[in-house]
Design a protein around this nucleic acid. Structure first.
Lengths: 172, 172
DNA sequence: AAGATAAATGTTATAACATAACATGTCGTC
DNA sequence: GACGACATGTTATGTTATAACATTTATCTT
């Protein structure tokens, strides 16, 4: 069984070069923080890197466990402060419906996106969904509602999982 | 100051007959549960009524405090079970970004709606937003994503508050 | 009506998520 | 080197939610 699991992880990793995702995210973050004159400290970098270890949404206490080998003094506040910073800088999304956090590819640009959350592989996909946003803006204008922030989270089954694992999709 | 507060509450109550909201919600719930052959028990009814006491999203432990005079044995599970039932039946919405719950006007019909959450008065407005939903459906079809559920939550300032209290809107 | 079954609630305990408040350290600037 | 701003360390606690098992209540069957 261990072998199967490892194999599956391997397979999903092979689909794209994930180390590239991580280094891209870190580079972009460093650059953005430089421009903005804010500090991407070691802890903040480590938390960002841990979040980017997968495309799944990660829980705060999971991050805490995973940062401990690197920061033995880490406490909940350590993580939550780093998360607050990363969210402020638009480097990660908070997934409200999961109480979890996921790396943001759209850093710097418009940050509010559709989040597509797969029940099978648990990965979160961002979609800028320009048309959707425009329609929402129109709807809110009609309601005379002044927007501060949006959370648009869709749960379901992603393209990969619905084609690759039709049996599992029946069970969910 | 007490007088001012009471006056404000009075004013907001006067804007619509809120007892009607509550009785409507309870009647509709009773009818729906009857048709569906599920039990709208005393506890469930009380929780629904408590949620409908305002148009604000209410926290679970707030409900727990408020139900205790009626159900002295109430514990967290009492509330969460009732909430689970009411959500299953589409009688309330869970507001993911607030960890709170609000009465649903659209019970029975399509349940997934835009939730407009006002930072000033804290009231939650539902909008069926047909166009928005259609656009989202199209976007998700393009992404080959099979939807199970949607949470679309907009935070900002409602029409009432942005016209009535321009000073406060500056502070938020 | 008696007994079987399913549904709801009671009860205890604990898990999971998040923040407050104050102390200490680090770094740039005057 | 004193100061201020920011980041982090540290302790404690607040808030949200569920698990697991016992008991009661409702419903169905005969």
């Amino acid at each position: 069984m261990d072998i199967d699991i490892e194999f599956a992880q391997e397979a999903s990793k092979v689909e794209h070069d994930h180390t590239l995702c991580v280094t891209n995210a870190l580079n972009k973050a460093e650059q953005l923080c430089g421009v903005r004159g804010v500090q991407l400290t070691t802890i903040r970098q480590q938390v960002l890197a841990l979040i980017w270890e997968s495309h799944k949404a990660v829980k705060a206490y999971e991050l805490l466990d995973r940062i401990k080998p690197l920061q033995s003094a880490a406490k909940p506040a350590t993580i939550y402060r780093a998360l607050d910073f990363l969210i402020e800088q638009g480097l990660i999304h908070r997934v409200e419906s999961l109480n979890a956090f996921v790396g943001c590819r759209c850093s710097g640009q418009q940050h509010e996106q559709l989040l597509l959350i797969c029940k099978v592989c648990e990965e979160v996909e961002e979609r800028s969904a320009v048309e959707v946003m425009q329609t929402i803006v129109r709807e809110l204008a009609a309601a005379h509602f002044l927007v501060h922030s949006k959370a648009i989270e869709i749960h379901g089954i992603c393209a990969k999982c619905s084609t690759q694992q039709p049996v599992i999709t029946q069970l969910v």
